[in-house]
Every structure is written in structure tokens, then in C-alpha cells.
Design a protein around this nucleic acid. Sequence first.
DNA 1: AGTGAAACAATAGGGAC
DNA 2: GTCCCTATTGTTTCACT
Lengths: 153, 153
Amino acid sequence: MDELDAAILRSLQSDARRSNRDVAAEVGVAPSTALERTRLLRDRGVIRGATLDVDLAAVGRPVQALIAIRVRPPSRRAIEAFRDWVQGLPETIGLFVVSGAEDFLVHVAVADNEALYAFVIDRLTQRPEVADVRTSVVYEHLRRPPRIEAGDH
Amino acid sequence: MDELDAAILRSLQSDARRSNRDVAAEVGVAPSTALERTRLLRDRGVIRGATLDVDLAAVGRPVQALIAIRVRPPSRRAIEAFRDWVQGLPETIGLFVVSGAEDFLVHVAVADNEALYAFVIDRLTQRPEVADVRTSVVYEHLRRPPRIEAGDH
DNA sequence: AGTGAAACAATAGGGAC
DNA sequence: GTCCCTATTGTTTCACT
């Protein structure tokens, strides 16, 4: 992870579909050099992939929520079972396994408030390990790419 | 948003860098058709962009946390001022504005626990509108692309 | 919605510093 | 060892059917 690697990552972060030629020009190296570095970053697992940023409202799921869940018992078995189950639900778009008062924060996107209510009272409470549920509606969700700097990572 | 649009979105979701040719073959239309549809999806704002999925640990920020924050007074002025400020911090990688007991959930990625502690007690508590802070360490963060279906969106 | 040709980009191999 | 140049292959794009 030298300064060139960091510059390539920064360039691709703003638009992962940018051509290698453009990236090379932006960071000031030959296209072949940029290409080799990018592939090494991919091989080393620094670049995991590129995901499409889709407008959830435009695909019929304008309502988002974060649902804090406490699981009982908080054993590895119960945690992992619940995690795997909730990850497979169609409403789920993100999942945080956390420390603190709760064990999970499930990020869901649904069609309307009714669907959100149904998700919470029909699906979640079906699971016997769910001890407590707290729903927060998401008014706004902003994402920022991490600031990347060179270093001995 | 017909079935073809949905299929194109599903195809690009798994890898936003997939070539138009591959997408066309996968969804069963000519490349020119896939290209036009993809461009229309972009123009209509359904596709917002493509973001690089970077391994945070590999770029020196292996510790993640979600910080729940209550702001006082919970006025538009205070909410928006805090949102804009926290969004600009280098540690911030995500921000949820939510209903419920708290007003914000700030997703941060930092170098170590010390940096996390410093973020909470030095930076956040500097702001006079911050009334309450609750930090949860993120053990695991999974993301899932939304399941996209055709429809009159 | 599909075809073909021209412009463009990605890749592999070889060579300079 | 890192970077660059060039030739080849493959991809995108546009005018046209």
C-alpha cells in the first residue's frame, strides 16, 4: 500500500466503472502500470468488488428501517443461526453484529410502513431466540467512502 | 421498470464492472439493447453509480463502530448542522438519520480502539448539541444488494 | 431490437531504467 | 523490481436496417 495504490483506490471509489485508462491518467502513471496495481489490489483482497448503487425508492422500496435485536441466549450458536436466517430475508439489505445492549442491527428496505410492521411482528418474532426488538425508521441514509492513505497495512 | 430493466439491475448488482456484453448475454438481449436500457436507468436516477468495495482492515481501519447520538434540541436546525458536520469527519463511513430514542447512528471505521475512544470523547462531545452518546462496536458488517423486481415504480 | 464497422479499452509480452 | 511501450484481442458505441 504505497501512495500509488492509495491514489488508485481513491480514484475508483468515486466511480468504480471508471476505465483503467482514466485512472492511469488521473494518478499520473501508464495504463499498464495502473492495470497491474489494480489487479494486485484485487488479488490481495483490498478490492473486494464493485457494487451498484441503486435508488431504493426507484425500485419500489422507499421505506428503510434499522431494527435493533437482542437474542437469548447470546451464545455463538444462537447468534450465528439468527444472523444466517435474517441475512437471507428479502427485506434485509444490511446487518450489523454489535456489542452493547443489543446483538444485531438489521437494516431493511420495504415497500411501505405496513410491510415494515409485518416484517417486525410476523417474521422477526417468529424466531424463538428473539428476546427484544426495537425499530427505528431511517429518514436519511448517507454513505461516504473511507478516506484512504498510504501506509504499512 | 419492466422485467428487462430488473434483470439488468440484478446482473450488475453482483458485479458493477461486468461488461455490457456479458450483461446482455445474461439477460438474453442484444448488447445495444442492454446498453440503451442501462443508460436510461442511469439517466432516470435508478442507477446512482458504482462504488468500490474496499476491505477496511486492509487499508488500516479494522475497527468499526455504530454510535447512537441524541441531539438537543431536536430541531431541524440542530439536526442538519450536526449531520453535515459529522458527515465530513474522516472517520465517518455512514450516517443514518433515524426516528426513535436517538436521532443519529454514525458508522465509523478507525485504526484501533484508542482512535474510537478519542473520536467519541474528543470530537463528538465537542459539539454542544450532542446530548447523549452510545457506542456499539461492530463485530461484523454484512451487506446484501436489494432484491429487485419489475413493477410500476 | 438487432447488425456491422469504427473507436476505444484491456491485456500480455518484451524492454528500459 | 518498478514502470512503460506496443501489438493483439476484446469491448463499447453509433449509424443503419
